[in-house]
Amino acid sequence: MKLYYSPGACSLSPHIALLEAGLPYDLVKVDLKAKKLENGDDFLGINPKGQVPTLVLDSGEVVTEGPVIVQMIADKVSGKNLAPARDSAERYKLQEWLTYINSEVHKNFGPMFSPVLADDAKAFFKDRVMGKFKYLDGALAGNDYLMGKQFTVADGYLFTMLSWAERMKFDLAALPNLLAYKARVGARPAVQAALTKEGLMKAAA
C-alpha cells in the first residue's frame, strides 16, 4: 500500500492507523499547493480531488477520504480491535465519532488555514471548534478513549485535530479531559512513530 500524505495534515490519521495496524506501507509526500509529488509527478493523476490522505492499495485501487481509509485499515487487522466488528452497534458508534470529527471539527478548522480570510472570520471558526472541543471534553469524562477503554481509529483522527489546535495556540486549559486524552494518545508508540516519520517530532536518541 502507498499512503500519500503531507506532514501534519489530516493524512496523519491514517498514518497512525497503519502503524497501529502493523501493516506494510510506503509513504509518498505530496506538495498540496503545487499538487506534485517529490519526484515531480502530478498528484492529480493519482487523486483528481488533489487532497490527502490518498491510499493506493496493492491492487491499484485508489481510496480517498480519511474516515473511509481508516476503517478499511482497521478491517484488514480485525484482531487488533482498531474498529468494532462490522454491523455491530459499536461500529455505528465509531462511525458516529468519525463523522462528528470530520464534519464538526475538521471542517471548521479548514477556514483557519486560509491565507486570505480575515482574523475576525477565523476567530468565528475558532469559537465553533472550541464549542466542539467542550462537547468532546465532556464525552471523554471517565474514558481513556472515544470508545471507552479501547483505542480505535477515531482516536488517531481526533489526535490529529488536537495537534492542529496546539499549532494554532488554542487554550485548552479549561478542558482537562481533552488535555489528558491528547497526552495519552500522543504517548502511544505508533503515534510517536508517525510524528517522527513525518518530521513533526525528533527521533529519540
Results as ranks from 00 to 15, higher is better:
Lys182Ala: 14
Pro115Met: 04
Tyr92Ala: 11
Arg91Gln: 13
Asn177Phe: 01
Val185Pro: 05
Lys80Asn: 09
Val116Leu: 05
Asn177Lys: 04
Val62Phe: 02
Pro24Ala: 07
Ala193Trp: 04
Leu94Trp: 00
Met168Glu: 12
Ala118Gln: 12
Thr64Tyr: 04
Ala173Arg: 03
Arg91Asn: 10
Arg128Ala: 15
Ser114Arg: 02
Gln150Phe: 04
Asn47Glu: 06
Gly45Leu: 09
Ile101Cys: 11
Val56Asp: 07
Pro7His: 01
Ile16Asn: 02
Pro24Thr: 07
Ile69Val: 13
Gly40Asp: 12
Gly60Lys: 02
Asn102Asp: 15
Lys132Asp: 15
Leu162Ser: 05
Gly66Gln: 13
Pro115His: 02
Pro67Cys: 09
Arg188Asn: 07
Leu44Arg: 01
Ile73Val: 14
Ala194Glu: 14
Ala180Gly: 09
Lys93Trp: 03
Ser114Glu: 09
Glu198Gly: 02
Leu200Val: 08
Lys197Ala: 14
Ala121Asp: 15
Pro53Ser: 10
Ala121Ser: 10
Leu12Phe: 04
Asp119Ser: 04
Thr99Arg: 08
Lys29Pro: 08
Tyr145Ala: 00
Asp42Cys: 01
Ser114His: 02
Leu175Thr: 11
Ser88Tyr: 03
Asp171Asn: 14
Pro7Asn: 04
Met72Lys: 13
Ala154Cys: 09
Ala190Ile: 05
Ser78Leu: 12
Lys126Asn: 14
Ala205Cys: 10
Met130Pro: 08
Ala139Asn: 11
Glu20Phe: 01
Leu140Thr: 00
Lys134Phe: 06
Val52Asn: 02
Leu146Ile: 00
Val70Lys: 03
Asp127Thr: 14
Glu166Tyr: 04
Tyr145Ile: 00
Ala165Ser: 13
Gly131Pro: 12
Gly138Asn: 11
Ala165Gly: 13
